[in-house]
Simulated scan of single mutants.
Amino acid sequence: MEGCVVSEKQSPQTSSSGLSQNAAATLSYVLGFITGLIFLFMEKDNKFVRFHAMQSIVLSVAFLVLSTVLGFIPIIGWLLGALLSPVALIVWIVCMVKAYQGQWFEFPVAGPFSRDQVNKMSQP
């Protein structure tokens, strides 16, 4: 994907949940912002899991808002909204696969924003 940033793989570590960090990061995408919030609040130390949880929240909220806005625009908005669902599915699958592979996969806007938020939360 053009514009996406992938950094090096992480060595397998465990998260606060007792799962491997890759499994926890993957699960943070499963139900969008719901599991993202769960893993964001549950995980205290592992930045990899926190990053993917935050990116899950940002992406799912962005798709939800965009879908809602497009629903109010007759015809063109409805057509674009219909195209948004397959795009969201592809983004969701890519994020889960990359998280499971242990990669810091950043989408152009959501990734840097998520990384900044996680870094701010980690500071005392």
Results as ranks from 00 to 15, higher is better:
Ile76Arg: 06
Ile93Val: 13
Leu27Gly: 04
Thr68Arg: 12
Val30Leu: 15
Leu64Phe: 14
Leu70Gln: 02
Met96Gly: 07
Phe72Val: 14
Tyr29Ser: 14
Lys44Cys: 01
Leu89Gln: 12
Pro124Trp: 10
Ala25Lys: 00
Leu31Glu: 08
Lys47Glu: 08
Leu66Pro: 02
Asp116Trp: 10
Glu2Met: 12
Phe33His: 12
Met121Cys: 09
Leu59Met: 15
Asn46Arg: 02
Leu37Lys: 07
Ile90Gln: 04
Pro112Phe: 07
Ala62Asn: 09
Phe39Arg: 03
Gly77Asp: 05
Gly71Asn: 00
Gln13Pro: 01
Trp92Lys: 03
Tyr29Val: 13
Pro74Tyr: 05
Leu27Asn: 01
Met1Val: 12
Asn46Met: 00
Phe63Gly: 06
Phe113Leu: 14
Ala99Asp: 02
Trp104His: 11
Ser122Phe: 10
Gln101Trp: 04
Pro124Ser: 12
Cys4Met: 13
Pro124Glu: 10
Ala62Leu: 13
Ala110Asp: 01
Gly3Arg: 05
Thr35Tyr: 14
Cys95Phe: 03
Tyr100Asp: 03
Gly36Ser: 11
Met42Leu: 15
Asn46Leu: 00
Ser15Gly: 15
Ser17Ile: 08
Arg50Val: 02
Trp92His: 14
Val6Ala: 08
Gln13Leu: 03
Ala53Pro: 08
Trp92Ala: 03
Gly102Phe: 01
Ala62Thr: 14
Gln21Asp: 08
Val109Tyr: 13
Tyr29Leu: 12
Ala25Asn: 00
Ala88Phe: 13
Ala53Arg: 04
Leu84Met: 01
Gly71Ile: 00
Leu70Asp: 01
Lys47Asn: 06
Val69Asn: 05
Leu80His: 08
Gln123Cys: 07
Leu64Lys: 09
Thr26Ala: 15
Phe51Thr: 03
Ser20Met: 03
Val58Gln: 10
Thr26Arg: 10
Trp92Tyr: 06
Lys47Gln: 10
Phe105Asp: 00
Leu19Ser: 04
Ser56Asn: 10
Trp92Asn: 04
Ala23Trp: 11
Met121Tyr: 13
Val61Glu: 03
Ser7Glu: 10
Phe63Asp: 03
Met96Phe: 01
Gly81Asn: 13
Ser85Thr: 14
Leu84Asn: 00
Ser114Thr: 09
Val118Ser: 01
Pro74Ser: 05
Ala110Gln: 02
Phe107Asn: 04
Pro108Gly: 05
Phe39Tyr: 15
Asn22Ala: 08
Ile93Pro: 01
Val65Ala: 06
Val49Thr: 00
Val61Arg: 07
Val87Ile: 15
Asp116Gln: 13
Leu79Gly: 15
Phe39Ile: 02
Asn46Gln: 10
Trp78Ser: 15
Phe51Leu: 02
Gln117Gly: 05
Gly71Met: 00
Gly77His: 03
Val61Gln: 04
Met121Gln: 14
Ala25Pro: 01
Ile76Asn: 03
Leu27Ile: 12
Ala82Pro: 08
Thr26Asp: 06
Asn119Glu: 15
